[in-house]
Amino acid sequence: MKRILLSAALAVALPSIAWADAGHSSGEPYGEPGDSRKPARIVQIVMREADERMEFVPKNIKIRRGQQIKFVIRNNGEMNHEIVIGTLEGNLKHGAQMAKNPDMEHDDPNMRRLVPKASDSLIWKFTKAGEFDFSCLIPGHREAGMSGTIIVQ
């Protein structure tokens, strides 16, 4: 019976630990998922490849602390891209893990992956002031220029 209980406890705890090790945790320093029923400032972001680079347009976004943002994201490129909102340290750590596991799939509220010519949205509430990162963590994409900064004042 103890072995069954221990196995059940590990089955519940290990995914949470793995999720936290990947740079995810509850109470993120950069905010929390937004509420689609509440008003939000709309910020459009385009993903694209241009002149042998990959990029987000715009690359820098300024917002107010406490503001809920609806990112309307469009992949105008010819490749799959993703956007991951986080701290620079967390995104770099997660990017290193993705380099080892390029087929890693996500279903986190702070990220979206889009096929070419697709659109999606992501609602996020920035609860703390600071400088945060958004990146495409598909291996090689951030290194090709696909990152940006969110400044929360």
Rank of each mutant, 00 (worst) to 15 (best):
V12T: 09
V12A: 12
A13T: 09
L14R: 05
P15V: 13
S16H: 11
A18P: 02
A20Y: 08
A20T: 14
A20G: 06
D21I: 05
D21N: 09
D21P: 00
D21L: 09
A22V: 04
G23V: 04
H24P: 00
S25L: 07
S25T: 06
S26M: 13
S26A: 14
G27T: 04
E28Q: 15
P29T: 10
Y30K: 11
Y30M: 07
E32K: 13
P33Q: 05
P33E: 13
P33V: 04
G34Y: 10
D35Y: 08
D35A: 01
D35T: 01
S36F: 02
R37E: 11
K38P: 02
K38L: 08
A40L: 02
R41C: 03
Q44P: 02
I45A: 08
I45E: 06
I45C: 10
I45R: 13
V46I: 11
V46E: 15
R48S: 06
A50F: 06
A50Y: 10
D51W: 11
E52I: 01
M54F: 08
M54E: 15
V57R: 05
V57M: 07
V57E: 13
K59A: 11
K59F: 00
N60G: 02
K62S: 13
K62E: 12
I63W: 09
I63A: 14
R64S: 11
R65P: 03
R65A: 15
G66M: 08
G66Q: 08
Q67P: 00
Q67F: 03
Q68L: 11
Q68R: 06
I69Q: 09
I69E: 07
K70R: 09
F71K: 01
I73R: 05
I73K: 06
I73D: 15
I73Y: 14
R74D: 07
R74H: 11
N76W: 01
G77K: 03
E78Y: 14
M79H: 13
M79R: 04
N80Y: 08
N80D: 12
H81R: 09
H81V: 00
E82L: 00
E82H: 09
E82G: 10
I83S: 01
I83G: 01
I85S: 05
I85C: 04
I85Y: 04
T87K: 04
E89S: 07
E89V: 02
N91F: 00
L92P: 00
H94K: 15
H94W: 08
A96T: 07
Q97D: 13
Q97E: 14
M98V: 06
M98I: 02
A99L: 08
A99V: 06
A99F: 05
K100N: 10
N101Q: 13
N101M: 06
P102S: 12
D103L: 14
D103K: 14
D103I: 09
E105Q: 12
H106L: 15
D108V: 01
P109W: 13
N110T: 01
N110D: 12
M111R: 05
V115K: 15
P116G: 10
P116N: 15
P116Q: 11
K117C: 01
K117Q: 11
A118F: 04
S119E: 12
S119Y: 05
D120E: 03
L122A: 13
L122V: 10
I123W: 03
I123G: 03
W124P: 01
W124V: 03
K125A: 09
K125I: 03
F126G: 10
T127A: 12
T127Q: 10
K128E: 14
